[in-house]
Computed example of a mutant assay.
Amino acid sequence: MPVVVALGAFLMTLFGGWVAGRVVDRRHLVLGLAGGLMLGVIGLDLLPEALEAAGEEVFGVPAALLLFVAGFLAAHAVERMLALRRAAHGASPDERTPQVGLTAAAAMIGHSAMDGIAIGLAFQVGGGMAVAVAVAVIAHDFADGFNTYTITSLYGNTRRRALLMLGAAALAPVAGAASTLLFTLPEQLLGIYLGFFAGVLLYLATSDILPEAHHEHPARSTLLCTLLGAAFIWLVIGVAE
């Protein structure tokens, strides 16, 4: 079942790359909705489940919350390292380095694989968690596909290379979900992982998805889509319970 759900992420990633090749004006609404879905999953489902599963405290702080902060900082550190590398390799649009685009795209592929693992591990927790995480991951993978294609081509790579990286990013969540069929995490470790994953998702939502959604179109409709995304997750959780 996790692999079947991950196929939704596969299709959404390809769809995001397809849109990137055409750059439609309503992209901000889709990203706004994706940001709302991610925030809803983080605050209403992932963190409560992580706190319950992880259990123990470390120096007075729940282990899940420590990993939540660690996940946020890890995602921030990776993005900063990529930004420094981009700056070191080309300061102007005329001096773009294809390898930088490929490196950034490879990082997106690794993240997509973790998305698939998150879906698989969520199924180990229960159906409600699986549905909520799957919705967030599938919505987020639109942005993954869009960004993978864009950043690969932005740095001077050919369209063929951009499509190859897009294809790898689309297959990554399926492979990640399939890998979880081979192992089962203890409840405590699962809670710790979910806390870490929630931190990563929060960073992506607040530093990438939502700022991009509001950058060129700071419209009320974009904010409304974000609110609807969070409300939808609330509805999903309520129905699942």
Rank of each mutant, 00 (worst) to 15 (best):
V41C: 14
S179V: 03
L166C: 12
L182S: 15
F15H: 05
F196K: 07
G126S: 07
A175N: 03
A213K: 04
P186G: 15
L37I: 12
I119W: 00
Q188N: 06
L228G: 01
R96M: 09
V5L: 13
L201Y: 07
P98C: 11
A168R: 10
S153E: 12
G229E: 08
L82C: 05
Y149N: 07
E52K: 14
N147G: 13
V69Y: 06
I233S: 01
L102T: 08
E56I: 07
L164Y: 13
L210S: 02
D144L: 11
V24W: 13
V41E: 04
G55H: 15
L14K: 03
A106T: 14
D25M: 07
I117T: 06
L67H: 00
E212K: 09
M114S: 08
L210W: 04
Q124Y: 02
G32K: 01
L202I: 04
H76N: 07
R22G: 04
H140L: 04
L202S: 11
L33M: 04
T184H: 15
F146Q: 08
V4K: 02
R80A: 10
L185R: 14
H140A: 05
T226P: 00
L82K: 10
G199V: 06
A231W: 13
P48F: 09
T158F: 10
T150Q: 11
P211A: 02
M165S: 15
A170Q: 05
A20M: 04
G8E: 10
A178P: 01
L14E: 01
G126Q: 03
V200H: 14
G120D: 08
